[in-house]
Nucleic acid binder design. Sequence first.
DNA 1: GACGAATAGTTCCAGATGGAAATATAGCGG
DNA 2: CCGCTATATTTCCATCTGGAACTATTCGTC
Lengths: 158, 158
Amino acid sequence: MDTRSAPGSDPTTRRAERVAAIDTWRRLLVFQRRSMNELDDELRAERGLDLEEYDVLLHLTEAGRDGLRMGEIADRALLARSSCTRVVDRLERGGLVERAHEPQDRRMVRVLLTADGRAAQRRAAAVHVRGIERRFSSRLSPEDLVDLRRVLTRLEES
Amino acid sequence: MDTRSAPGSDPTTRRAERVAAIDTWRRLLVFQRRSMNELDDELRAERGLDLEEYDVLLHLTEAGRDGLRMGEIADRALLARSSCTRVVDRLERGGLVERAHEPQDRRMVRVLLTADGRAAQRRAAAVHVRGIERRFSSRLSPEDLVDLRRVLTRLEES
DNA sequence: GACGAATAGTTCCAGATGGAAATATAGCGG
DNA sequence: CCGCTATATTTCCATCTGGAACTATTCGTC
């Protein structure tokens, strides 16, 4: 599909459209940053977890019984390897996860949720989901969500 | 307007919709984080500026002749006051901005772009806009942008 | 005018970040 | 089985971040 402006629009119009698209990008950015700051504050205040820690717990929950290796966590949570080490350190100190060396390949570390970790994830999810619904889901109609998903699909392409 | 699900949808459907909305939120998040990381890398590599520094230069450019005070910069760039001090320090060391005490109220600092700063902003904008168009504008049709703006307007409300 | 409260900005501090170097382990070719 | 290379993770380092404490200046009240 041709996503460019309709032929025949003059250069001035084309330029205005480019600027308007960039402005939309900025609004999206500001909305996300504000929301993330607030969600992070909420989670810290009510559950003593930051957003990275919660995200790692969530990925581990989704991964199920076998947990994840450090590298898998880093990739899924968009973290540098070194940051991942430290986040898992903190979670381990708090008793929410355990590290276990893979017997077959002792270079690898398998990270597993503890019972406390599972409980903490559930309790944090309640707060976090509430925050997302307040700022996001509850403001959008089903049609808005359909449109937004279509837009996202185009943005994620290739 | 009622943004909730249509009446009559059963609890299972309602739950699936809630989960789907949260998933959309996550996709949006991942897209933004990836894009920002890449845009930041590009700007550093090609212009030696990070995204915060560029953003401050952009706000100063938009503000025009009189520049901005530190607090105004912090508010617009979503920066803590202390972070703002340091970003402006770096820009000042690079000769891109100047600090001037307000004669009327010597508590306030007015930050002004230098000629070098204006040039740097323009040169950085070329790179940054190109990056945004590659990842965002060029992938969306005019209709997509209209829909996205409508969604954003709802999200920004109150 | 002096004094306490308010405001703008900077400095200090504790903690987080990513990338480079270091460490530990595995796999491969001879 | 030895050395070489590749891979997974951690440690180190230079730098960034926000919030609290601090400094400088102004304002309001008496």
